[in-house]
């Protein structure tokens, strides 16, 4: 277990570096979590829990003013405990949410600590030589690596039996409630996305998008293709028409002559 816990901890650190530059997609719950399933020898179970967590955190992104839960450690520990405890998605969701909320604080700590590195860099560049600041930059990476690797290791190596005991003591209805919550939580992520994109006339497109999947039952790919076309049409009409917008306004008032 020690070896596996170490490997998973290293993987959590790597996923954090993915969030901090590599950007191959491993910062997302599905890709971060599915690997844990392989490490623990239960790839199928891991895949399903990771998929559940991905849906739950679909829109959760660290952008702008938002300081979202840390989905990396959340999904990695969630998948691991889900598999180890044998309780699957319900346990994965319960543990994942808790860990994500706690580890978020460590991310803020690492980001604060890195302030010292840039101050040190200010002094180092006075030497007039290149590449002297490199180690400071990599130290920042190490900070982030440890900010996930350490808590993930502690949770899995020391915590898993404790968490199992807690999970066993938690009544069935609480776990049920958490599973229900996991299907409502995506609303927060989607609302975060919307609040960054909504401008006054975007509601039209919101209604179209909602209708395409809700009433017409189109798949994501089909919706994406239609969305691309709509964006194109929007570009042709609205953006090109901006120069003579007054004329268009006149047109629209004349349209009600029936």
């Amino acid at each position: 277990m020690l070896v596996k816990a170490l490997i998973i901890a290293i993987w959590a650190g790597v996923c954090t570096l993915d969030q901090r530059g590599l950007h191959l997609g491993f910062r997302k719950p599905l890709l971060a979590g599915v690997v844990v399933g392989f490490i623990l020898g239960e790839p199928l179970e891991g895949l399903i829990i990771a998929g559940t967590l991905e849906l739950m955190w679909l829109g959760t992104n660290a952008i702008g003013a938002y300081q979202p839960p840390d989905v990396i450690s959340g999904s990695i520990v969630g998948v691991a405990i889900g598999i180890i405890s044998g309780q699957g998605e319900a346990a994965g969701v319960a543990v994942g949410i808790t860990v994500a909320l706690l580890v978020q604080q460590l991310d803020m700590l690492a980001t604060t600590l890195n302030v010292f590195l840039v101050h040190k860099a200010d002094k180092v560049i006075e030497s007039g030589e290149f590449d002297k600041i490199n180690y400071l930059h990599y130290l920042g990476g190490l900070n982030y690596f440890l900010s996930r690797a350490i808590p993930v290791f502690l949770c899995i190596y020391f915590g898993s039996s404790l968490i199992e005991t807690i999970l066993a003591a938690v009544p069935e209805w609480v776990l049920n409630g958490l599973t229900i919550a996991s299907k409502i939580i995506p609303a927060v992520g989607l609302a975060m996305l919307l609040s960054m994109m909504m401008k006054k006339n975007m509601w039209i497109f919101f209604l179209i998008g909602f209708s395409l999947s809700n009433f017409m039952g189109l798949s994501t790919i089909a919706t994406a293709i239609i969305a691309f076309s709509l964006a194109g049409i929007y570009g042709l009409i609205v953006e090109n028409g901006k120069k003579d917008s007054e004329i268009i306004l006149d047109d629209s008032t004349g349209g009600y002559d029936l």
Binding site: M197, M202, F205, L207, N214, T223, F228
Partner: peptide, 20 residues
């Protein structure tokens, strides 16, 4: 702005499939 349209349509279309 066009990217915005794309994003809003996609996000809205995900509501029925992900929020249950």
């Amino acid at each position: 702005n066009m990217a915005n349209v794309l994003g809003v349509v996609i996000t809205a279309s995900l509501i029925p499939t992900t929020v249950k």
